[in-house]
C-alpha cells in the first residue's frame, strides 16, 4: 500500500462510534408491569409496562397531565403522601415489588433518591443540607459525615463553588447551585436510583447545561429516570425515552430511534410539534 500522509491517520481497527454502539448486556433495574394508578375514582395511569435499565438515563416525555410525574413518584412511593390514591400492577426494583405490604418505605426512599422541579433546600447551612439524610439515618461520626458531604458535593459538581462556605445558608446560593445542592443531598445517602422531576425547568440555559452534563456523568454510577417537558433535553441527555400520553405508554425505545424514526405516529406528531 502506498504510504501517504500519516499525520492524520487514525487507527483502522477502532470500533464503531459510541453513539452507535448497541447496549449489549444491560441489567434491568426497575421493572414495571401493568401498572395502574388512581386518584380516588380517577384513573390516571393505565397498564404501564416497561423495563428501565441499570446505570442509564431514561427520559419520560409527554404533554402536561399525561401522568409521567405521577409515574415517577410511584417509584419511590411519594404518592403515598397524597390521600385517596390507589395502585394496581407491579413496580419492582431489583426484583422486589415496591408496593409489598409491610415494606419499609423509609428504607425504599433511601435507596431511591429524588430531585424536584423547584429546588427545595432546607433553610439550613450547605453542610447541614447535605448531611440531613445522614443524620436521620443515624450517623454520628462527624469525620465520616464530613467525608461523605464532600464526596457528594464533588459528585454534584458543586464542591469547588461552596467549599469555603459550607456553613453559609443554602438559600444564599443561586438557583442552579441550589439544584445541584439538592442533587448532592440526594446522593449523600448513596442511592442506587435517582429520580428527577424536571430538574432544570426552573433554571437558566447555562445552569441547565451544567445539570445536563452532571446527569451524563452521574449515569456511570446511578440509574437515572428523568421527567422532562423539554424534548430536546430528553434527546441530549437520555439513552432511552418513554413517551406518555393520557396516562398510557405510547412508545418506549432507544432515544436515537424515538427522535430519528419513531414507530408510532403519535410519538412523531408530538416530537415534531404537530401535536395539538
Amino acid at each position: 500500500m502506498t504510504t501517504l500522509d500519516f499525520e492524520r491517520r487514525v487507527e483502522t481497527n477502532r470500533p464503531v462510534t459510541s453513539m452507535q454502539q448497541q447496549a449489549a448486556d444491560v441489567r434491568t433495574k426497575i421493572s414495571v408491569r401493568d401498572f395502574d394508578f388512581y386518584y380516588g375514582e380517577n384513573q390516571v395511569l393505565h397498564g404501564i409496562s416497561l423495563e428501565i435499565p441499570e446505570k442509564q438515563v431514561t427520559a419520560l416525555i409527554g404533554p402536561s397531565g399525561c401522568g409521567k410525574s405521577t409515574f415517577l413518584r410511584s417509584i419511590n412511593r411519594m404518592n403515598d403522601t397524597i390521600p385517596g390514591t390507589r395502585v394496581g400492577g407491579v413496580i419492582s426494583i431489583d426484583g422486589l415489588d415496591v408496593n409489598t405490604p409491610g415494606l419499609d418505605v423509609v428504607a425504599l426512599r433511601r435507596r431511591v433518591g429524588m430531585v424536584f422541579q423547584k429546588s427545595n433546600p432546607f433553610p439550613k447551612s450547605v453542610f447541614e443540607n447535605v448531611a440531613y439524610g445522614l443524620r436521620i439515618g443515624g450517623l454520628r461520626d462527624r469525620g465520616l459525615m464530613e467525608e461523605i458531604v464532600e464526596k457528594s458535593l464533588r459528585r454534584a459538581a458543586l464542591w469547588d463553588e461552596v467549599k469555603d462556605r459550607l456553613n453559609a445558608s443554602a438559600l444564599a446560593l443561586s438557583g442552579g447551585q441550589q439544584q445541584r445542592l439538592c442533587i448532592a443531598r440526594a446522593l449523600a445517602v448513596d442511592p442506587d436510583i435517582l429520580l428527577m422531576d424536571e430538574p432544570a425547568s426552573a433554571l437558566d440555559p447555562i445552569a441547565t447545561q451544567k445539570i445536563e452534563e452532571l446527569i451524563w456523568e452521574l449515569k456511570d454510577n446511578y440509574t437515572i429516570v428523568i421527567v422532562t417537558h423539554n424534548m430536546q433535553q430528553a434527546a441530549r441527555v437520555s439513552d432511552r425515552t418513554a413517551f406518555f400520553m393520557l396516562g398510557k405508554l405510547v412508545e418506549y425505545d432507544d432515544t436515537n430511534t424515538i427522535f430519528m424514526n419513531p414507530a408510532q405516529k403519535m410519538t412523531e406528531d408530538y416530537i415534531t410539534g404537530r401535536f395539538g
Binding site: 411519594m78 403522601t81 428504607a107 426512599r109 424536584f116 427545595n120 433546600p121 440531613y132 436521620i136
Partner: peptide, 13 residues
C-alpha cells in the same frame, strides 16, 4: 412550604 416536607420525606425521613 409543602415542598420542604416532600424533600425531607424523599430522603427517607
Amino acid at each position: 412550604a409543602w415542598e420542604q416536607r416532600e424533600a425531607s420525606l424523599a430522603l427517607g425521613a
